[in-house]
Simulated assay, not measured.
Amino acid sequence: MQETPLCLSVGHLLPYSMSDSNTTDFTNPSTFILLGIPGLETAHVWISIPFCTMYIIAILGNFTILFIVKMEPSLHGPMYYFLCMLAITDLVMSMSIVPKMLSIFWFNSRDIDFSACLTQMYFIHCFLAMESGIFVAMALDRYVAICHPLRHSTILTNPLVAKIGLAVVVRSGLLALPLPFLVRQWPYCRTNIIPEPFCSHIAVVKLACADTRVNSYYGLFVIFCVMGLDVIFIAVSYIQILRAIFSLPTKDARLKTFGTCGSHLCAILGFYIPGLFSSLMYRFGQNVAIHFHVLIANICLLLPPMLNPIIYEVRTRQIRDRLLRLYTHKGT
């Protein structure tokens, strides 16, 4: 049994030809070799252009959200505090993946230290879980704002928001913590080549010369605790939200109220749908080229950090107005 953690389930798909690989026996490699996009090495420079563009947009967009929320006192509320957490999560996610990826594409710098690989693995899985948890916190905020609007400020107080944020961080950190320790204990005697541009849990585990079922079982447990429970909680929240919306007397009131959830819904779809597509492609797309699997895995990791700030800057009136005032002030 093997886990398929959404967009990180492609590492073991590669029965890669080892004609140009290091197959010397070793127990614990000092370094791993990241191949980038297997089979498309000659196109790495061209492939780097969209990934670099996504990275720049993610960095600028998320820093913009943090700056606007900090500078605008009217945005100092639960929804925007959670949005800042999401922006920080997206920044860390992008920074933990893209710089090394671009060094592979541009400078053919494929080596990564064993400890650095495990650190990158931890950050990827930790912040994926954290992003999912933040979407749950945002769903709670939308539920309280729509179903209990008069009590929103008394229910979601700053201390409670801080406790929710801390719970999301602690849960994600603790769930991801066993992964590098489980990986470190195995002997590696096949190869030290990872057919991806980053160190995902499943890609590294497939290189081990041992019975790694415990990794698979724990991976499935993490998926259930994070993606499964989070999606259920979000679904339940929106069922209650829709019930409250449909109880409103006029169509305009229903549309206006539902519009306050638009940014959150778009961000959720941008996070979960690419991961679901990647997982389904892994299950049913065995004849799909390996480089396509790897490309999809990369896109589903880098797409949310780029999309989230765009969604919230375009669809959230308070942020959009503050941006317009900022640019108007600079232009005068």
Rank of each mutant, 00 (worst) to 15 (best):
D211G: 12
S115H: 07
I273V: 15
P73D: 13
V314F: 15
S103A: 05
K100V: 00
R110M: 02
S278A: 15
S278T: 14
L303S: 09
Y81T: 07
L307Y: 09
I193R: 03
V69W: 01
C266K: 07
L102S: 04
F32R: 02
G11T: 01
T157W: 10
G165I: 03
D252L: 12
I65S: 05
G275I: 05
S237E: 02
H148N: 12
P29V: 02
C126P: 03
L302I: 05
C261L: 10
G228N: 08
K163C: 12
F67S: 08
A297E: 09
A145V: 09
Y282I: 00
F271W: 07
S153C: 08
I59E: 00
L166Q: 12
M227K: 04
R320Y: 13
L177I: 05
L324T: 13
N308K: 08
M227T: 10
L128G: 01
I290Q: 09
Y81H: 10
Q286T: 11
R190A: 01
R320C: 13
D90M: 04
F258A: 15
N62F: 07
L156R: 00
V98N: 03
L220A: 11
Q2Y: 11
T119R: 05
S19I: 11
V222Y: 03
I193V: 09
D113F: 02
Y80G: 01
P78Q: 04
S153D: 14
V288W: 04
I104H: 01
Y312M: 07
F51M: 14
V288K: 06
I296L: 14
M101G: 01
T31D: 10
I299G: 04
W186N: 10
Q240R: 15
H76I: 07
Y55H: 11
R110P: 00
H329P: 01
P50D: 13
F271A: 06
A267S: 14
I146A: 05
K70Y: 15
P249L: 12
T64R: 14
